[in-house]
Amino acid sequence: MNLPISLTINGVRRDIALDDPRVTLLDLLRERLDLTGTKKGCDRGQCGACTILVDGRRINSCLALAVSHDGAEITTIEGVAYGEEPHPVQAAFIAHDGFQCGFCTPGQIMSGIGLIQEGQAGDDPERVRECMSGNLCRCGAYAGITEAMLEAQANMTAANRRRSA
């Protein structure tokens, strides 16, 4: 079965000839496009390690068939920094020790970027924890993750205000 699809991944258009409809976005990224920043944890939508943005929304890439997302715009952890300068969420995770082993971190950061765009948590740590509950961290870095998210949200809001002033 030949299934041609086209995706825009981190701003670059990619034409892909899928030979199998079973390929998930996660496996496409990792196994076929060498974008291994997105992690495979449970592969069943329970851990959030595979979180990416599809058309600006955070989803579990392990539960998304690539063929069904023909034409989508995809952002992965490889696409969020501004050159050598980290994304504000990445910087805040470093500043607040939002990780230990690092395996869940790309998913946490993509989920955090998605959450800030959704605008549902604001400066409320309880809402941050609730809205990040789809990302598990076996090292238990949740306290640092919450602090990082609050700082990133504040920094990005201030930067937007400066830009629009």
């Binding site: 979180t51 989803i59 579990n60 990040m132 789809g134």
Partner: peptide, 9 residues
């Protein structure tokens, strides 16, 4: 229900 990622999809 579920997680933010699952609710988005």
């Amino acid at each position: 229900g579920a997680s933010a990622q699952l609710r988005n999809a």
